[in-house]
Nucleic acid binder design. Sequence first.
DNA 1: CCCGGGCGTCAGGGTTGCGTCAAAGACGGC
DNA 2: GCCGTCTTTGACGCAACCCTGACGCCCGGG
Lengths: 227, 227
Amino acid sequence: MTRVLVIDDEPQIVRALVINLRARKYEVDAAHDGATALQLAAARHPDVVVLDLGLPDMDGVEVIRGLRGWTRVPILVLSARHSSDEKVEALDAGADDYVTKPFGMDELLARLRAAVRRAEPTGGGEDDVLVETDGFTVDLAAKKVHRDGRDVRLTPTEWHLLEVLVRNTGRLVSQKQLLQEVWGPSYGTETNYLRVYMAQLRRKLEADPSHPKHFITEPGMGYRFEK
Amino acid sequence: MTRVLVIDDEPQIVRALVINLRARKYEVDAAHDGATALQLAAARHPDVVVLDLGLPDMDGVEVIRGLRGWTRVPILVLSARHSSDEKVEALDAGADDYVTKPFGMDELLARLRAAVRRAEPTGGGEDDVLVETDGFTVDLAAKKVHRDGRDVRLTPTEWHLLEVLVRNTGRLVSQKQLLQEVWGPSYGTETNYLRVYMAQLRRKLEADPSHPKHFITEPGMGYRFEK
DNA sequence: CCCGGGCGTCAGGGTTGCGTCAAAGACGGC
DNA sequence: GCCGTCTTTGACGCAACCCTGACGCCCGGG
């Protein structure tokens, strides 16, 4: 869940933001002054900060600098001031976006999404989807199968078939659905393809291919993958 | 030097932007329609894109999608339309910022600086830039490859290909993804390029190029870099 | 007991995809 | 304007993959 820190001294604005954000499944913390905000940011490590520049205890730009001293968290600035200098100062201090009041809630939320999105990890992120059984491991993101300490080589068709089955772990997948997903929409009756490729998958992955534990045949209906 | 791609069909706006950007030591490319823009982006790999939504040949949002299909380059949208829906659509399509015309040049430049700044690589991941194998070392930050005590000379295309593979160490990278990341979004089927350049990388980096240990072919699917 | 449908297995042949080499084309520097 | 480097393109041999048909097995029904 994405965590947002809202910093504003006007209660009605805070309330409106909190309600809208919570309704969209964000986790929200709120602060009414700069000192509290910096403490909260350090304690809670928000994924994005919404900051009103007009705070009672310190200059908004100082809050930005305070945050930028140790974090690159996206900062979205709110301000009643339209002057170009204000914007430039805030942005150059390290803010990521600047919205002038009064603002549209839709637009603010869209800018928030944009800020969160680009802070997401890039290709370096290890968001691999791992499916493990007692005999082998399937990594859907890396397109890798591991068994007995070594990688198993699968052909494109074998992979495609395995992928469909694994994404439906525990569920029955009909022969027609398998054929259409792997071989294309114009296929649907060539069940012999399935028999051949199922045998190859079992030979490569099952401990005892003739008595499969994971790739299970449902006669007349389809196949099922079980962990 | 930071490279900017300006996309706008109004000559006076383009001229104003180009003059201001060049004066601040940016390298500037300009396009006045979407098709040219996408080509230029692929060819020049800008560090930031300034995009006017009102183009003669295609919808601005389509340009955003065309870029987002293969790159995370910051996109700063210009538009004469103030409506909230327009902004939300552009931002959710992948834009990073949205500025309505008429705009102040100071503000635009500040937003541009903010967009470029946050796209910069994080200072923290120092150990990520060095990738070592038993035969050679890749330094992603310094753009250098070391082997047997000396630097290996790579052409720009070779380096780009290596970079994509190394950033996805252990993961399979599809032929289409490689082609689009290295040669641009309009490529995707020219697998002969890959064959030629993979052979060159292997010749320069593998101990035994005909039996590669690190640059592994997954027939019909793509390539994989392993340490 | 025989028969038929559905499934698993195996092996051969057409086709596709990959690696390699070489040469032409594009680009930039001197 | 010439030359060297990098990129693109084409051709060829070879290996791997995909499809196909044949056969045997199991099981339920006639």
